[in-house]
Design a binder for these strands. Structure first.
Length: 233
DNA sequence: CTTTCGATCCGT
DNA sequence: CGGATCGAAAGG
């Protein structure tokens, strides 16, 4: 007995508040089903969270673009192909595609199966895993530029072709991963992370980088937000 | 089959 | 402003 019969000193427990106890709720599918333009607006403020083997990253969506049925700029417009297959599936799945031979872009599929619409996620405000994001993006990248573009956020969040078809809003096994991983990639409600829904007003403007239907105001972002890809456009 | 070109990013 | 870099889509 190392204390020679004296009573053990009282054990003190330290409750260190690392993160506020914010409950995480999945983004409601009802906001994706009826109207893709409304969905693109509703997705502003929502959180994309990726639990990868390397660590957890998360970001708040601050910029989106809608791609609709009958819209010549929409990949699904010319019918269902191997690439656009997931766009014609159920809502809440990930549509990931290769662009310019070297970058990937990430979309959230909307509307009931058979429709072929989606919302491109164009920018995130980094919330968690900033070190990992810096690691993935490169040491010369400034924090402001980690996720302020559709291919940048894909790289910072560790996403890729393997997430094609991932269920972003499922609650049980099988959700999150495109092939194998379970619950790794989730779309969460705005209040799932500290800060919650930004108070800034929403702006609608023309979409970026397209050559057809370039006049339609299908791009949405928070006014004055520091992490929007092209704040001036 | 061949050619074209894109929902981009980065360094100059 | 140009170069990287690869498939999907369009054209013959």
């Amino acid at each position: 007995m190392k204390n020679f019969g004296r009573p053990e000193p009282p054990q003190r427990t330290f409750l260190i508040p690392i993160f506020p106890p914010v409950p995480k709720s999945v983004f409601p599918v009802s906001l994706l089903t009826s109207d893709t333009l409304a969905a693109a607006r509703s997705l502003l403020g929502a959180v994309l969270e990726h639990r990868s083997p390397e660590g957890v990253t998360a970001g708040r969506i601050v910029e989106t673009e809608a791609y609709l049925q009958g819209d010549p700029a929409c990949h699904a417009n010319r019918g269902e192909t191997p690439r656009t297959k997931v766009m014609f599936g159920p809502p809440g799945r990930a549509y990931v595609y290769l662009i310019y031979g070297m970058h990937q872009c990430f979309n959230v599929v909307t509307r009931p199966a058979g429709t072929g619409e989606a919302v491109l996620i164009r920018a995130l405000e980094p919330l968690a895993g900033l070190d990992l994001m810096r690691l993935r993006r490169g040491s010369t990248i400034k924090d402001m530029n980690l996720c302020n573009g559709p291919a940048k956020l894909v790289q910072a969040m560790g996403l890729g072709a393997g997430h094609y078809g991932a269920n972003l809003i499922g609650s049980g096994a099988g959700s999150g991963g495109g092939s194998g991983a379970r619950g790794a990639l989730r779309l969460l409600a705005a209040d799932s992370y500290p800060g919650g829904m930004p108070a800034a007003p929403l702006i609608a403007g023309p979409r970026v980088g397209i050559s057809v239907a370039a006049d339609l105001p299908y791009r949405f972002y928070f006014k004055g937000n520091r992490y929007v890809s092209k704040p001036w456009a």
